[in-house]
Design a protein around this nucleic acid. Structure first.
Lengths: 213, 213, 213, 213
DNA sequence: CGGTAATCGAGACGGTACGTCATGTCTTACA
DNA sequence: TGTAAGACATGACGTACCGTCTCGATTACCG
């Protein structure tokens, strides 16, 4: 489900281009699309997902509720799109510092800074909550926000194996959870701060674990 | 905030005894208290926190809404109490298997089985979400569900240090996040299953990391 | 369905007293009831039934929509009650002028003045329209606004028969339609004005018809 | 306003010919016109005017909403045209039975059968309602559905005067209301059935009244 | 025969109102 | 004082029409 495909006609995973040309009917208003996403982002970062009501978004965006429902079936998926558009200015990175340690730090530390820099923790928690109840949503959420990070880190680990830096038998999937799990844990539970130093300690723990196995 | 103290009169952290004796007026109905918590637990496990409305709890418990609000200021704190009462049949354990590895497995694996055995993941996500917005609630949540587990694991690590099984300089706080973080990660994000085997792999990774540092 | 009985619990034709005493729960707000009916009457006479939206009534009455729906299932029945309360200050009359002609004029002419004095024609048309679609509503409407007038006129005709003023075999039901039908016709279709003079001409026509049959 | 003239360019009372020839541009689609009226008639007789939404008509007729609005400014005028086309298969009649009573019965009884044979009462009520609010519409409605009947009956009465069957001073306008008023009354209010017998009784009452005056 | 101009289909859009639901507060009568 | 019952203001929900609009495609005429 993306922002640029009506959800009733069920064009699953339609292209993201703003308006497929040469189609009958009035084309979609790019202005409205942008206003809706901007209004959603504002409300999201200011007061959390609970404050995002379709009425509030419609009013703030100067748009009718029907227009929102035409393109997004729920406020959760709307929030997903808004957050995605907001955060994916930062393109997927391909760090290559020459060492595994450098690469992992280049992944984890900027991510930590991003999610602690603005109240994203609140949003991620809300999205995770929704994902528990709505499996389709959960799949969307993971595909956009979780898997890309895991893919990056997995690639980094594989390159280290190819370089002979770590053993070929390394359990990479578990390592991924050991890398991101503690960061999410601190982000969501807040029992301790999520800092660059903490990310470095996590990386060092995991590297030590890898080398000893 | 506990179930047995009216929240308006602000008797912070009042004792949990059912009814302070020798007070004027009609005593609190223990029957109502139990019915409310039972109804909440039922709704919670059946359909998640979103399905817990004060109206629904009142109707199912055969109780008036005012009575619920008399003792719990929000459905979230009500859910917290209900969940606590439900899960704390399982007492805090003091595992002592003789080895650090055995102790950690005795902590993590039963916990993993508990939270995956029933739809607790959904509840934990919802409570974490609420904790992001409401700091007082967050403190309650952590004090009841997060810190006790960390305390147990911290004690286990300390005993291992005293036994000389691991170095005295071990960064125990980080280790705690490396132990529980990955489990929470899989529980909440669901990208991979949370199994006994996974818990064991996590423990082994962390132990290896500890020994190398 | 009356204004003073909740429509869900289905207490058909409950008493009209504002609040049955000695019942548990918060009593109905008489203030809200009056404000709702007043707001409805205002909107009704100013712009017709089409302008009566539940939202508009709620706002104007300073009342929540839920409160309106608790007592009236539709805006049509609300309008019915409002109009009834508005017009039934004028009690059912028992004219007795000594002659049939005088009695009939005493019924028809004031009625004609009432319905032409304010824009009631519009309302009656709207209620009649609703009555066509909703039989239950139609029965309510007739019982409140049509039958009482027919009852009055029927009584007048019967007394004239008892006095020997008109034949015992007079077809009174048809006569009632001949008396009120033309007045409704002019009120609703507006092809000619509904005046006192017209009412008098109708009465004279019908009296002449009665005597010749 | 007729179906065959665009209402914006304001060609008041334009001819009904399908397409004025010798004009630039694509000619009006007769197919669309017929489909729109047919769809409207279907909806009208099946569920009443309230069920006639522009969206519904457009979908059922396989036509775009813009095309409807191009030719009819409101669903009420659309319904008027549809109803007119539907009912004016029955041409204006010129009854001549030789007697006034026969002529009047020849007018009233078929009309009664027509309007009770299908749910026209509902439509007439709805149109009358609209006529109360929109004077221009009211004029259209009367010109098409009310005045023609009155014209017929008026002609019948005048011929009776010329034949010397009734007095020259007969108040014909009032008589017209006495003839049609009761029938409309029963049609719209439904308190008693509108039958041939009732029409006959009305005619007899009025004839008796005429002769006595 | 190409240009002009009116239609038509499709459908997106800003609005308004619908009827329902949950929240948290309140008012009463009873225990 | 505590409780059951239940009325209330508030505000969001998701849907349905309204009347307007912007497209591209079609179909006549007129030069």
């Amino acid at each position: 489900m993306t922002a640029t495909s009506p959800h009733q006609p069920a064009s699953p995973d339609a292209a993201t281009e703003p308006t497929p040309p040469g189609r009958p009917g009035r084309p979609r208003s790019e202005k409205a699309r942008a206003a809706i996403l901007a209004a959603t982002t504002d409300l999201l970062l200011a007061h959390g997902l609970a404050a995002v009501s379709m009425d509030a978004v419609a009013e703030r965006a100067g748009v009718s509720k029907a227009t929102i429902y035409r393109w997004w079936p729920s406020k959760e998926l709307l929030a997903l799109d808004a957050l995605y558009e907001e955060t994916t200015a930062s393109q997927p990175r391909r760090p290559d510092t020459g060492t595994l340690r450098g690469d992992l730090l280049a992944l984890l530390q900027p991510w930590g800074r991003l999610v602690t820099g603005r109240p994203y923790g609140r949003l991620i928690a809300a999205l995770v909550t929704q994902a528990q109840t709505d499996p389709a949503f959960g799949q969307q959420y993971r595909a956009r926000f979780v898997e890309p990070r895991r893919d990056e880190a997995r690639a980094v680990l594989r390159r280290a194996i190819e370089r002979g830096e770590i053993p070929a038998g390394t359990r990479t999937e578990v390592a991924l959870d050991l890398l991101y799990g503690p960061l999410y844990h601190r982000l969501l539970h807040g029992h301790q701060p999520l800092t660059d130093k903490f990310a470095r300690q996590v990386v060092d723990y995991v590297l030590a674990g890898i080398e000893r196995q």
